[in-house]
Simulated scan of single mutants.
Amino acid sequence: MNTTPAHDARMASMTFASVYPHYLAKVEKKGRTKEELHQVIAWLTGFDEAQLQSLINEKATFADFFERANLNPNAQFITGTICGYRIEEIENPVTRQVRYLDKLVDELAKGKKMEKILRTV
């Protein structure tokens, strides 16, 4: 199942600020912390706390967010299904990167060990 151009455009135009509170609520509801969420985001994107806050404040779209990111080279090892899409089969780069982030947040919320989430083991 591949994404449509309309789906890709919608993903690219969504703001990180609109999704971030949902990520935070999801992980905190499962007993994880904001710091752990930020560690996961930093691993994927290279953004520190100040950069994340700046992106939230300016309501950066996911297209802008990932254009500025220094994507971790091990991100390619994030595989599996998220929201009905097999991540490794998504052709649009921005959509794939958003799904990488979604998958990492899911793994964090499901209680996976940080070493596994960050693909260090």
Rank of each mutant, 00 (worst) to 15 (best):
N2S: 15
T3I: 15
T3F: 10
P5N: 07
A6W: 02
H7L: 09
D8E: 04
D8Q: 01
A12M: 14
A12Q: 10
S13K: 11
S13R: 11
M14P: 06
F16M: 08
A17V: 01
V19L: 07
V19D: 06
V19T: 14
Y20N: 14
Y20R: 11
P21W: 09
H22V: 13
L24E: 00
K26E: 02
V27K: 00
K29E: 09
K29F: 14
K30S: 15
G31L: 07
G31P: 12
R32C: 03
R32E: 00
E35T: 12
E36S: 12
E36F: 12
L37I: 10
L37C: 08
L37A: 10
H38Q: 11
H38M: 10
V40T: 02
I41L: 04
I41N: 01
I41S: 04
A42D: 08
A42N: 08
L44S: 10
L44H: 05
T45W: 09
T45Y: 03
G46I: 13
F47E: 10
F47N: 05
F47C: 10
F47P: 06
E49Q: 15
E49L: 15
A50D: 07
Q51A: 12
Q51V: 11
L52W: 15
Q53M: 11
L55M: 11
N57D: 05
K59V: 00
K59Q: 02
T61E: 03
T61Y: 03
F62Y: 04
D64K: 10
F66M: 14
F66Y: 05
F66S: 11
A69P: 06
N70L: 12
L71P: 10
N72C: 12
N72R: 13
P73G: 06
A75Q: 01
A75P: 00
A75L: 01
A75K: 01
Q76E: 05
F77S: 14
F77D: 13
I78A: 07
T79R: 07
G80S: 04
G80V: 11
G80L: 04
G80F: 08
T81Y: 13
C83Y: 07
G84F: 14
Y85K: 05
R86I: 11
R86G: 04
I87F: 06
I90Q: 03
P93W: 02
V94M: 03
T95G: 13
Q97E: 15
Q97N: 14
R99L: 07
Y100P: 02
L101K: 06
L101M: 08
D102V: 03
L104V: 03
V105L: 03
L108H: 00
L108N: 00
L108V: 00
K110M: 01
K110P: 03
K113N: 11
E115R: 14
E115P: 07
K116Q: 15
K116T: 15
K116M: 15
I117C: 11
L118F: 13
L118E: 13
R119I: 15
T120R: 12
T120G: 10
V121I: 08
V121K: 12
